[in-house]
């Protein structure tokens, strides 16, 4: 029969270090890419604003009812063009698609494999001693 695993006691300094590590993970992997995106978004909006200077309702393909609603919202064709011309590009890059799905599948395989090993330790300690 295996002996009970006795985990070490973590001191306050260790807990502070671990808490700081969590914050670093959150800000480096989530916040940094977001800040780059914010900068790119401002740049794209500026480019669209220049392109929208000559826009008319007709060139934007807006019918009479749509024009009426835009005007009620306080939008002229130049201002509306910034929103109307902001379109997604759904061209699929096959390499990026394969990489993305490989990352997701690899992540779940890793989770399930390592969790299974850890779970066996939990079950062994829980039931072998009872």
């Amino acid at each position: 029969m295996k002996r009970h695993y006795v985990p070490p006691k973590q001191g306050m300094l260790g807990q502070i270090v671990d808490t700081a590590m969590v914050l670093v993970l959150v800000y480096v992997s989530l916040m940094l890419p977001l800040l780059f995106k914010a900068a790119a978004k401002v740049e794209n909006a500026a480019v669209r604003a220049v392109d929208a200077a000559q826009a008319t309702w007709e060139s934007l393909g807006q019918n009479a009812i749509q024009q009426e609603q835009w005007i009620k919202l306080g939008y002229g064709p130049e201002k509306a063009a910034i929103l109307i011309n902001n379109r997604f590009d759904y061209t699929i890059d096959p390499v990026m698609l394969v990489v993305t799905f490989a990352v997701i599948i690899g992540y779940f395989i890793f989770l399930l494999k390592v969790s299974d090993q850890q779970y066996r330790e939990v079950i062994a300690e829980k039931f072998d001693h009872e």
């Binding site: 992997s29 989530l30 890419p33 977001l34 997604f88 759904y90 993305t100 990352v103 992540y107 890793f110």
Partner: peptide
Amino acid sequence: FLGYGATLLSVMSFYIL
């Protein structure tokens, strides 16, 4: 992935790390 592929990878990198 369509439109937010970079965000998807950024979130995955967070959970992997």
